[in-house]
Nucleic acid binder design. Structure first.
Length: 708
RNA sequence: GGGCGAGUAGCUCAAUCGGAUAGAGCACCGGCCUUCUAAGCCGGGGGUUACAGGUUCGAUCCCUGUCUCGCCUACCA
């Protein structure tokens, strides 16, 4: 399972003696190979150049090189590609790098002609080989398309969001969902078939806590809880049901640790009795839990839908328990010898698993082994998680029951679809989930150890291909700056004030709720659209405000690389200037205005693009060519982003594209350009920028407004 | 104690397998709206990449050590 709430999930001991390799390394290779069939422009040129230089070095010097580095020179004037390979060869060949570079440049020039996309090669600096591209040919190619459709997709399963259904979603959950949803879009853009899952821990201790709150602290019956939920439907602000739960959860958490020692003991007993009733099912407590968790889940789906985030399937822990997934997994694990029964030491009487990379010695007790089944016969969380992941790969031999749960309307060009939920029996006619070839679990970095245990179990069972295609898509938490915490009215301890950030805590009710932030963002953008476009209808102003607000939020969550803690501050999150989503959207609006005023479509301009002559601006103005080159990198960036599981690369690409476009826009006044040929190229450049910006923003789940 | 991650401009972050002059945004200072929208553009100041060694033609990146910070580290779920 996805271990949705780190604070309450046991993590195991760390990997020992195991150098960490990038978890997605092997999958990345597969995806790379898959692209190679029909690579996008920049990637194709890069590969062509690398293959050629490798061949020349082989035949000329009889040297076989491993990976050959390729980069971009610091200035476009030096060319588009730079190869530092001569430095590496210098020692082997006992020759100055500059001389080697000169030799190689001459051979490359003979092999890669303008017809192959290259305009020339030269030795530069201390020994770089710089390659220039045939700008006219490449722009003509780009005008038609950047990369083609891919074939033979992998079946990929991405799990994200996975919020405990006991309280409102907060900004940390937003980062998870936005990262996950964006990665899904990237995989889809790469031609993969993707199922999106949101794992629901509906029988966990966090749900139990809220049940204790409603039933024991507030004295509500099952019917009264139902009435409360009905009354909260369609409400806004703090009257939303998940917001009510937020407060109840915080109150219960405090209640547990308040009172006398005896009271605390009794309350803790109540807590676990409630949990066990929920796990067991078929009683009133479980019915209350079902009502609450389902109502909160619906609220989470509504919140995420505001951001354009949808799911295909909601597997729940209750079914994993009641359909006995574990019992099957247990037999498989025992049969494969992954688990063994410990007869000595502190884990005596438990079924345990050797940790990844652990060094074990014959005849000694591995006290550090991970307990999977306790001495009382109950299974730990990691055990259930192993069973669930066997199902994900189609290796368990049992399936969920399925039932439709939530309908998504058709949005823009995406068709309407139904989100399914797990049940014990379910309906006869249903899609099948699980059985994926590759999986990504978007789970915060605090859970890398339990995730590693699950992977280890798969590997131990001999499912090495699956283990290699199992990616823990980890990311750091979203915390609050002390200033933000004070602003929200929380008591901040003196020692916390000097820290860069403070961790949010659902148990303390300390954090920024997702819906509150979205509301705030929309209010801020609406104020702007109202003042900027008072003449436009209200519905349109609202729609634009929402597009900008969501764009700002999604971009904010995506601009940081995954392993960077986001110190949240309203000032940064509500900013619409500089490196933000609205900045990119604004570039799009500017480009669209040009075509609107000109009475042309970007498609028509690109279709009519004549071959650029040698005196073209394309060859003299780097701010023009720079945009085309950047456009050519789209597929390259997508490839990198998927290989490294890093959506921030795409966000940065979008920003750089927008930045270059704004620069271009400022330098060239297109509509008043008198030279017809020049005007056509400028229009085509704007069209390319527009096409790329819209495409890349869509990958990020950000819409492109018509006006701003 | 052990494991993982991090330390880069005043602040928040980048830096494509080790490559050319370490880049953006914010903040600050100074310019640019009669033009395709200023949610924009241009310019400026800002750096011993935590510290000390090492490897290398070349180190923010790799190795060793030190310092600082965060997270993880239970037969709980």
């Amino acid at each position: 399972m996805a271990l949705p709430c780190p604070a309450h999930r046991a993590a195991t001991n760390p990997l020992r003696h195991t150098p960490r390799t990038h978890p997605s390394a092997k999958l990345a290779l597969k995806i790379r190979a898959f692209y190679a069939k029909d690579p996008p422009v920049y990637l194709e040129l890069q590969q062509r150049l690398l293959a050629q230089v490798r061949e020349i070095i082989r035949s000329k010097y009889d040297v076989e090189l491993g990976a050959i580095a390729i980069e971009q020179p610091p200035d476009l004037k030096l060319g588009e590609f730079a190869l530092p390979v001569a430095f590496e060869l210098a020692r082997k060949l006992r020759k100055a790098p500059r001389i080697i570079a000169t030799e190689l440049a001459a051979d490359l020039a003979a092999a890669l002609t303008p017809a192959a996309g290259f305009a020339g090669f030269e030795a530069a600096g201390a020994g770089y080989i710089n390659a220039r591209l045939n700008r006219a040919a490449i722009s003509a190619q780009l005008a038609v398309s950047e990369g083609a459709a891919r074939t033979s997709p992998l079946h990929v399963l991405v799990e994200h969001t996975s919020i405990n259904p006991n309280k409102a979603a907060h900004i940390g959950h937003l980062r998870n969902a936005i990262l996950g949803d964006t990665f899904v879009r990237l995989l889809q853009a790469a031609g993969q078939r993707v199922d999106v899952q949101n794992y629901i821990d509906n029988t966990g201790v966090q749900v139990a806590d809220v049940v204790v709150g409603f039933v024991h602290l507030e004295g509500r019956t099952l019917d009264q809880v139902r009435e409360l939920i009905t009354a909260a439907e369609g409400q806004t602000g703090n009257a939303r049901f998940d917001f009510l739960c937020w407060d109840v959860y915080a109150r219960v958490s405090q209640w547990y640790s308040a009172g006398t020692e005896d009271e605390q003991k009794a309350r803790k007993a109540l807590r676990y009795a409630t949990l066990h009733e929920i796990e067991h099912g078929g009683n009133e407590t479980a019915a209350v839990a079902e009502l609450i968790s389902t109502a909160v889940l619906r609220r989470h789906l509504e919140t995420m839908q505001r951001l354009g985030i949808t799911y295909d399937f909601l597997p729940r822990e209750s079914e994993i328990l009641h359909l006995n997934f574990w019992a099957l997994a247990f037999e498989l694990l025992k049969a494969k010898g992954v688990l063994y029964f410990e007869t000595e030491g502190k884990n005596k009487g438990c079924w345990v698993m050797t940790r990844p990379g652990a060094e074990t010695t014959e005849g000694t007790v591995d006290e550090d082994a991970k307990v999977i089944v306790r001495s009382n016969g109950t299974v730990t969380y990691v055990g259930k998680d192993i069973a669930y992941h066997l199902w994900k790969f189609g290796l368990l031999g049992r399936d969920f029951g399925y039932q439709p749960f939530y309908d998504y309307p058709s949005i823009q060009d995406e068709p309407a679809h139904t989100c399914w939920i797990s049940t014990e029996s379910g309906v006869a006619d249903h899609p099948h989930f699980g059985g994926a070839q590759a999986i990504y679990n978007v789970i915060d970095s605090r859970q890398s150890d339990p995730q590693a245990n699950v992977i280890q179990a798969l590997r131990g069972m001999g499912h090495t291909a699956e283990a290699d295609r199992y990616t823990h898509f980890s990311y750091e938490m979203v915390a609050l700056t002390p200033r933000c915490a004070v602003e929200l009215g929380y008591d901040v301890a003196a020692e916390d004030l000097s820290r860069p950030y403070i961790e949010v805590s659902g148990r303390k009710g300390f954090g920024v709720k997702a819906d509150d932030l979205i509301d705030k963002l929309i209010a801020a953008t609406r104020k702007e659209t109202d003042t900027r476009h008072p003449e436009r209808p209200e519905a349109e102003r609202q729609q634009t405000a929402e597009q900008i607000a969501i764009g700002a939020l999604r971009y904010f969550m995506l601009k940081y690389t995954r392993n960077s803690v986001i110190a949240f501050d309203f000032k940064d999150a509500l900013s619409f200037e500089g490196e933000t989503g609205p900045y990119v959207q604004y570039a799009i609006v500017r480009a669209r205005n040009i075509f609107r005023k000109a009475g042309l479509t970007p498609e028509a301009v690109l279709a009519g693009l004549a071959a650029a002559g040698p005196d073209s601006l394309l060859n003299s103005a780097d701010e023009v060519w720079g945009l085309w080159l950047r456009a050519a990198k789209r597929g390259f960036v997508l490839d990198q982003a998927i290989a490294t599981s890093e959506p921030a690369l795409v966000a940065r690409h979008a920003f750089q594209l927008a930045q270059e476009f704004n620069n271009f826009y400022h330098k060239h006044h297109i509509l008043t350009e008198e030279d017809a040929g020049k005007k056509q190229l400028l229009l085509a450049t704007a069209a390319i920028a527009l096409r790329e910006l819209v495409t890349v923003l869509a990958w990020l789940g950000i819409e492109s407004p018509e006006v701003m």
